[in-house]
Design a protein around this nucleic acid. Structure first.
Lengths: 334, 334
DNA sequence: TTGAAAGCGTTACCAT
DNA sequence: ATGGTAACGCTTTCAA
C-alpha cells in the first residue's frame, strides 16, 4: 500500500552497524560474538545499534570464514509413511548429537523429484543420506564427489556407500512360524510398480521354497493402507485358498488387516498377517501386528555415522557393518 | 591406516581447478555453471579437471555472491507424533514449491532443546516456523530480528506471527453430537504437564456448559498411545459413570480406544470416543476414529506462506486469516 | 572466447 | 580495547 512499495530492501550489514555505533566492523563482530576484549559500554552500544537496525549476520559470510557447519541432506520418498518418519527422526537425532543440521527433502516417490532434489541439494549440503530409485549414473551426475549414503539399495560401484537391509533370516522365521501354525497357502502382497522383484519378495520365495510351500501366491499392492486393502482383495480373489499373508511392509499389512475385517475374516483365525518394518503403528491396531521388524533408530544412526566418516575422512565402516538385520516380532496377527 | 592419516585435507577450490586446467577462475565458473561464452574443448578440459580433483563449489561462497537461497527452520516437538509429521510434510511441500530448503529440528518436547535449537538455528536459517513452549523473551533473545511464525500459540507481542488453531466450534459440535446420542457423562483426557489448561480443555468446558453437562470429568494423559490408555484407566477409575470421552488429540484417543478394548468396553456402544487432529491414522484403527479434524496441509502451507511474506517484505496476512478451524469428522468411534 | 579486478559479509591476525 | 588489512571461495562486471 504505497508505503510498503519501493526498491528491494538492501541487507543490513555489519558495516551499517559499525557506522551507526561509531566503531569498526571487527568491534561489532566482537560484541556480537561475545568476545572478551571489548569494553562493556562499547559492547552495549553496538548491541543496541544492531537491534535498532535489525541486523542479522549473513550465514554465508560467516560460514565462509569459519568453516564449521555441517549440513546433511536427507532424502525420503514419503515422509508420511511412518517407516520413513521413523528413519528420519532417528537420523535427525543422530545428527543433532553431532551438532549437524539436516535438510529434509520429500521426493513424493517420484524419480523426477529425485533428480530435481539432487540438483538443488548438490549445492546446498555437505553430504546426502537417503532413498533413491533413479540410476547410479544420474545419482552421480548430480552429486559429483559428494559423500552419499544410500539406504536399502545395493550400489554397483564404490562411488556410493550403502546401508543394507537384510531381512532374509527374519522372513524365513516368519514363514517358519506360519508353517508351524499349519499354514500351507501363504500369500504375499509385494511392492508394485518397481521393475525387479523386491528383495523382500526374494526372501519370501526362498523361505517358502525352504519350507516346501507355494511361493507363487503373490499380488501387488501400492504402499499405503488402501493399497494393502485392495491388494488383499485381489490376492484372495485369485487365490481364495490363502490363509496367511506376508506383506511388503507394515502399512500394507495394516490395510490388509482392515480389509480382512471388512471381508468378515477374523485375524489371525481366518487369516494370519505378518508385515515388515516393525512400526510403532503396529501396536495400535487390532489385533497387534506381527512383523519382521527393523531397528529404524539404528538404521538412521548408522547412516549418519557412515556419512560422518565419509565427511571427515575417517575410516568408513565396511559393508559388513553397514547392515541392519530384521527379526520376527510376533504379536496378535499371526 | 597410515596412508589415511596426516594433515587436514585442504579444500579443493576453484583456483585449484583453474590452475590444473590451465585457465582462469572465471572460466572454471563459466564451465561449471553452464554459461554459453566458452569453447567446448575448454569447457570439457575444465570439467575433467574438476572431476579429477573432486572439486565441489563452496555453498557459502556461492551463497554469498548470489543471494538467492532461502532456508527455513522448522521446529517440531516430536516428529514421531503423526500430527507433527503431517504438518512437517505439508510445510516441506509448500517450501519445495517455492524452491526453499527446510531444516528440520526435533526438540523432543523439551524446553531446553528449544533454546539449544534456537541458538543454532539463529545462524543457519533465514526464518523459523514451528512449535515452541519457551517464553517469548527467550524466543526473541535467540532469534533476534528473524522472521518467526509460531504455530498453535498466541503471541503477546507483535514480534511474532502466529497460526491460530480454532477448535471451538468443532469441539462444540463434538459435544453436541455426544449429547444428541444420549451421553450425559462426557469425560476428557487432557494434556498433562502444561501449566495453564489447554485451549482444547477450555473449548470442551464451554461446550459442556452450553449443553448443561458436567465439564469436570477430566484426567490427564501423556501425549502418546500408552498415555491415552493410562489416562482412560485413570478417568474411569475416578468416574466410572463416564460413557463418552473427548481427548486432547488423536494419539491419545487411539490409546484410549485400545485400552477400552482391553477393559472389555465396546466402542462406541459402551464408550464413545472422539479425538482431536483428524489424523490419517484414525482411519486405520477399529473402529475408525471420530475426530475434531484439522487440515494439517493447510496449516503447514499457511505457516510457510506467512513466513514467506515476512521474508520478502510482502504484506503479511492478518491474524484473521492465520486461523485453521477444526471441524467434527464422524467415523465409527462415536 | 578469455582474463583481470571488484566485490559479497564476515572473522582472524596483527598492529596500535 | 580497538582498528586496519587480509583472507574465505565464488560470481559478476568490464576489458581485452
Amino acid at each position: 500500500m504505497g508505503s510498503s512499495s519501493g526498491s528491494e530492501p538492501r541487507r543490513v550489514t555489519i558495516h551499517d552497524v559499525a557506522r551507526s555505533a561509531g566503531v569498526s566492523r571487527q568491534t561489532v563482530s566482537r560484541a556480537l560474538n561475545g568476545k572478551d576484549e571489548i569494553e562493556v559500554s562499547t559492547k552495549q552500544r553496538v548491541l543496541d545499534a544492531a537491534r535498532e537496525l535489525g541486523y542479522r549476520p549473513s550465514r554465508f559470510a560467516r560460514g565462509l570464514v569459519r568453516q564449521d557447519t555441517t549440513t546433511i541432506g536427507l532424502v525420503v520418498p514419503d515422509l508420511l509413511n511412518p517407516f520413513f518418519t521413523e528413519v528420519a527422526a532417528a537420523a535427525l537425532e543422530a545428527a543433532r548429537a553431532r551438532g549437524w543440521h539436516v535438510v529434509v527433502y520429500d521426493t513424493a516417490d517420484r524419480a523426477a523429484e529425485e533428480i530435481g532434489t539432487l540438483q538443488v541439494i548438490g549445492t546446498q549440503v555437505d553430504a546426502v543420506v537417503g532413498y533413491f530409485s533413479c540410476s547410479e549414473d544420474e545419482l552421480d551426475q548430480f552429486t559429483r564427489g559428494m559423500p552419499m549414503v544410500l539406504i536399502d539399495r545395493e550400489p554397483r560401484t564404490a562411488r556410493f556407500s550403502a546401508i543394507r537391509i537384510d531381512g532374509e533370516e527374519g522372513v524365513r522365521a516368519a514363514v517358519a512360524h506360519l508353517v508351524g501354525r499349519g499354514h500351507t497357502r501363504i500369500g504375499m502382497l509385494d511392492q508394485v510398480g518397481r521393475a525387479a522383484p523386491s528383495p523382500r519378495r526374494e526372501w519370501f520365495t526362498a523361505a517358502a521354497a525352504a519350507h516346501g510351500v507355494d511361493a507363487g501366491l503373490v499380488a501387488g499392492a501400492a504402499q499405503s493402507a488402501d493399497g494393502g486393502g485392495a491388494g488383499l482383495r485381489a490376492l484372495l480373489a485369485e487365490h481364495p485358498e490363502v490363509t496367511a499373508v506376508f506383506t511388503f511392509n507394515d502399512i500394507v499389512a495394516v490395510g490388509a488387516l482392515r480389509e480382512a475385517r471388512r471381508l468378515g475374516r477374523s485375524v489371525p483365525r481366518d487369516l494370519a498377517v505378518i508385515g515388515f518394518d516393525g512400526l510403532a503403528l503396529g501396536a495400535l491396531v487390532e489385533p497387534p501386528l506381527s512383523s519382521v521388524a527393523l531397528d529404524t533408530r539404528r538404521l538412521g544412526a548408522l547412516a549418519i555415522d557412515q556419512v560422518g566418516r565419509l565427511l571427515t575422512g575417517a575410516e568408513p565402516l565396511e559393508a559388513a557393518d553397514l547392515v541392519v538385520r530384521a527379526e520376527l516380532r510376533l504379536a496378535g496377527s499371526a
